[in-house]
């Protein structure tokens, strides 16, 4: 059933299994112990950063399939994306998996986007199991979007650190401990931010608008949730979301947090916080879903946020559009 921008999934869609694979810095962070696999380095036994990201994602895909007892023929679709041009990391990671593959790009909102579409595919009866993935790697993102790693420069305090992480979630029509009850596909909003070093600000309006649309469509209030986690707005973007709700005379409440604030500790020098598709993907797989499965959370909103940044368009003087997709997760019992 659809109301406004939100689709309420009448047919149950469950989270069958999930796997988070992260790099060294993420493994040393406050959530380090929560991840299924943390690399001793960021190269994952490969000879280039791009191959390393693919390998990390391959580990996550195989891990989620193994944990869910899924064989190749059981998976109806693999939906995935990353930050690299041509969705390189994902295409090469799935090259040997032999699964029907749809590559998606939603910048750092990709994990929520794949879950949203995967949920709809299962609810529509088009597949029994769908593997949803997202990944990012600090080193591949730096050289595509910014500077070479050895270039000597200072980052501004509002900059975020691209997470070296991958997450894979197997959705299924077979009952499990956590289900997706509703999804809201975001619209693109552009509040006019032109500073590529302040992406939280570029995404915050989209996060606010999608949350606002969900609360309008569902009749729920922020207080109905144990956790409302936006993608990777980090310090500035998440403070801005609070400010935007306050301007409406509303309070998003103490359940509100941001994946970009959870991944790294203060001492890890990540500036405003984490970003990248892998940030929300790994926090979801390593932190939010396990808490729902253990019953520590009853209902949670997972809102992946993406800055649809193109260095080309920024050089042409354009501002950075943002997007946010929302997935409502509930513990079944």
């Amino acid at each position: 059933m659809r109301r406004g921008d939100t689709v309420f999934l009448d047919a149950p869609v469950y989270v069958r299994s999930h796997f988070a694979c992260v790099g060294k810095k993420e493994g040393e962070g406050p959530l380090g112990a929560c991840f299924d696999y943390a690399g001793e380095d960021n190269i994952f036994g490969q000879d280039t950063w791009e191959k390393a990201e693919s390998e990390m994602l391959r580990i996550a895909c195989r891990g989620a399939m193994d944990k869910g007892g899924l064989r190749q023929e059981d998976v109806g679709f693999l939906l995935g994306g990353d930050l690299m041009n041509q969705c390189t990391a994902t295409s090469y990671a799935v090259r040997g998996l032999g699964l029907p593959f749809l590559g998606l790009y939603g910048a750092c909102s990709t994990m929520a986007e794949t879950l949203l579409i995967g949920g709809l595919l299962i609810a529509g009866g088009f597949a029994e199991n769908v593997l949803c993935t997202a990944s990012s790697h600090f080193c591949t993102a730096e050289r595509q979007y910014r500077y070479p790693l050895e270039y000597g420069g200072q980052r501004q305090p509002s900059a975020q650190w691209t997470a070296t992480a991958a997450g894979a979630v197997a959705l299924s029509s077979a009952p499990a401990a956590v289900r997706i009850s509703a999804v809201t596909a975001g619209r693109v909003y552009d509040p006019g931010v032109t500073d590529a070093g302040n992406m939280g600000a570029a995404m915050a309006q989209a996060a606010y608008e999608t949350l606002h649309a969900y609360f309008r469509d569902s009749g729920d209030a922020p207080a109905d949730f144990d956790m409302i986690a936006t993608g990777d707005l980090a310090e500035i973007g998440s403070a801005l979301v609070r400010r935007l709700f306050a301007a409406d005379g509303a309070d998003i409440g103490s359940a509100y947090t941001d994946c970009g604030l959870l991944l790294y500790g203060e001492e890890q020098d990540a500036h405003a916080g984490a970003s990248g598709c892998g940030c929300s993907a790994s926090v979801l797989c390593g932190h939010i879903l396990p808490m729902l499965e253990r019953g520590e959370l009853r209902r949670a909103l997972f809102c992946g946020t993406g800055a649809l940044l193109s260095p080309l368009m920024v050089n042409q003087g354009e501002s950075i559009p943002g997007i946010c997709h929302l997935v409502c997760l509930e513990a079944v019992k």
């Binding site: 501004q156 305090p157 931010v193 606010y208 301007a247």
Partner: peptide, 24 residues
């Protein structure tokens, strides 16, 4: 969103910490 683009800009600029020039 109730804020205009100008108010939005003002809000995020206020929230964005400046580079620590006294140290740099």
């Amino acid at each position: 969103m109730k804020l205009s683009k100008e108010q939005y800009k003002e809000a995020y600029e206020k929230l964005s910490p400046p580079s620590p020039s006294l140290r740099n």
